[in-house]
Amino acid sequence: MQTLQKPTFKIESTSMRGCFKLSVNGRKIVDLKYKNWYSGVAETYLDREKIQLKPKNWWSGKIEILKNHRKVGEISHNSKLHLKISRENEDGIEETYILKNSGKWKLKFDLALEAGESVMTLSPTNSFNKLNFDVFVHDENIPMEELAIYSAYACKLYYAYISAV
């Protein structure tokens, strides 16, 4: 009898610019590429939809999430460096997730619904300067690939924020 295996998500850095790929069970799903070194604009394709992440402006600290050139959400942060990912689902209802560092001595990120229910954990696998994560999914009723893309981008922002301090 064959048992069903839980999918294994992995986020791996592919360039010094911050580009990364998302793979499931060793099979590449998407490549997120940054337009250039300093812009913060990144894009990829998921299920034939163009996903673009781009800073709203230099001072606001908000990142717009665009799908096929239509704004569907944003990433922002608070004073505790908890990153808030708001996105519109297929029914037009806004869903809000909070990504925060839950590690004491080593960075580890938990993505939870605003109500507090954990949906995903991102654990760094290598060093501070490379964006490599093992992703553990706690709730399979979520758009895992899409949230993993937004979460990895937000983790890169977190690294940038703490590096600047």
Rank of each mutant, 00 (worst) to 15 (best):
Y158K: 08
S60R: 04
Y158W: 15
M144G: 02
Y97H: 13
D139C: 09
P7V: 00
I51R: 00
T125V: 06
E49L: 11
F136P: 01
G103I: 03
Y38H: 07
I162M: 15
K100G: 12
Q52I: 15
A148S: 15
L66A: 07
C155I: 02
T8M: 02
T44V: 07
N141G: 15
N25E: 06
A148Y: 02
S13A: 14
W58S: 11
Q2M: 07
K106H: 10
Y159W: 11
M16K: 14
I149F: 08
S151H: 03
E94K: 14
L157P: 00
C19H: 07
K106Q: 11
L147N: 07
L22C: 10
G116C: 11
H138C: 05
D134R: 09
S39W: 05
S60H: 06
V137F: 08
I149C: 12
K108T: 04
F9M: 11
S127C: 14
S163F: 09
E145H: 14
F128E: 09
I93D: 12
H82Y: 12
M1P: 05
N57V: 09
A112W: 00
K21M: 08
L46A: 06
F136A: 12
I149G: 09
S79Y: 12
L32G: 00
L122Q: 03
K50C: 13
